[in-house]
Design a protein around this nucleic acid. Structure first.
Lengths: 246, 246
DNA sequence: GAGTGGTCTAGACCACATC
DNA sequence: ATGTGGTCTAGACCACTCA
């Protein structure tokens, strides 16, 4: 991105002014001009700075809000989203703690591996680049409920390499934000059905071959780059999901 | 400002003007003032008729568009939605026909039953009111893939009572719209996991006890009233779903 | 009370679809 | 050429938050 003293929105190739403004703000947010959780300038400020009417600014900000990379708070300001914070995976299962507390996590293994072609493609890396492969179990009230296998490109998460397995936090995404400056803004989960292999079944305290729901997740940063591949297994008999159509 | 005159009571009870307008339009659409698929008046018309600015009308219409009960088409007009049309249930499974054709349906049984308390509550009827219970199988390339159990309140669907099982169309919702004047605008699916009983397994050509995904659907008309309860069973090994989070 | 986002106005012009 | 929704302006005032 180039640095300009005066913003130039006048000549978009058939793109609406508010869309251009939204794109400009999007890039600035990704570049870190405003930190996660911080407020972006007030709408009147933006209107003056970019030389557009207030309504145009509002339309641009509404776009970013709809994309989830910004949140408006009446009377306070517009804030860069803090990102997802983890327990959302539980929405696919009926697991519940006594006090509805978030699940804990226990890392079993963390090793450095080389990316295969498909993985590298998804993560925007080159085949053979280094990555961290993490196996962990999520627990609720001390009982294992999910088995997870994470893949994180080392280029973005060098800081995690030396982290002892005992010091990984329960919630991965806030930890990624704090230690590596990466905000997870969006995630996509692919659900399918299968049976547990012996190793995974042992982790979950279930019989081998037990029916299970498999969740393949891709997590994306504010710029839309995929920064995590994750496969999660959970007991199918606890599966439960709600989808709306219109 | 505790007592005294309430500032905003002149036009509405603290509700924004565009929200009031949206509600007004919503009711008119439900009441059938404009048929499904027909255009509502132009924005300039609405602005004049209701005595508000054009921007206010646009905001109200945007609300209805976001709710899916109206669709805007640049240069043509704003149209009342035609409603859902059926094959959407397939999005939970990997089933695919050779030419990606929609599934056919074969009705096995259609009987009149009395609603139990929970069913009546969901359907906005009284306990003991009459309803149609329909068992049907959905087929793809001649192979059974889904087993369905529908519950339709007779009050809304009297026209279906005398319909021979052989004359039910493949797609239920367009048929409901045509024969009963009911538009399905929205549906909610609850997914869970289970095992097939002997009767359902036989319908699907699967062994008894085979793992299956169960989908409990509620379908709603334009006014938000639930007009169908449906339970669908499908082979779990064909299960597949994608969910996005932000 | 100062600053923020939320609502609303009364215009103007543009892009698209249809005749 | 006409009518539709889409964009944009330059204001005004309201509702909320916080010092």
């Amino acid at each position: 991105m180039l640095e300009t003293g005066l913003p130039n929105l006048a000549n978009g190739a058939g793109v609406s002014r508010y869309a251009q403004l939204a794109q400009d703000l999007r890039q600035r947010i990704v570049a870190g001009e405003w930190a996660a959780g911080a407020a972006i300038p007030a709408e009147t400020d933006l209107a003056e700075r970019f030389g557009v009417a207030l309504g145009t600014v509002r339309q641009a900000v509404a776009m970013l809000a709809a994309e989830g990379i910004v949140q408006r708070v009446h009377g306070k300001g517009t804030f860069v989203t803090q990102g997802l914070n983890g327990p959302s995976l539980l929405r696919f299962f009926r697991f519940r703690g006594p006090t509805n507390e978030p699940p804990t996590a226990r890392v079993h293994r963390c090793q450095t591996v080389r990316l295969r072609a498909a993985e590298a493609l998804a993560l925007g890396q080159q085949t053979g680049d280094a990555a961290l492969r993490v196996k962990r179990v999520r627990l609720l009230a001390g009982r294992p409920v999910l088995a997870e296998d994470l893949l994180l490109p080392l280029a973005r998460f060098e800081a995690l390499r030396a982290l002892p397995t005992g010091e990984w936090e329960d919630l991965l995404y806030p930890m990624l934000a704090r230690l590596c400056g990466v905000t997870v803004a969006r995630a996509n989960d692919e659900l399918s059905f299968g049976h547990l292999d012996a190793a995974t079944a042992a982790l979950l305290d279930l019989p081998e071959g037990a029916p299970a729901i498999r969740v393949d997740r891709q997590a994306f940063d504010l710029g839309g780059q995929c920064i995590e591949l994750r496969t999660t297994w959970g007991d199918a008999t606890a599966f439960h999901y709600s989808a709306e159509m219109r």
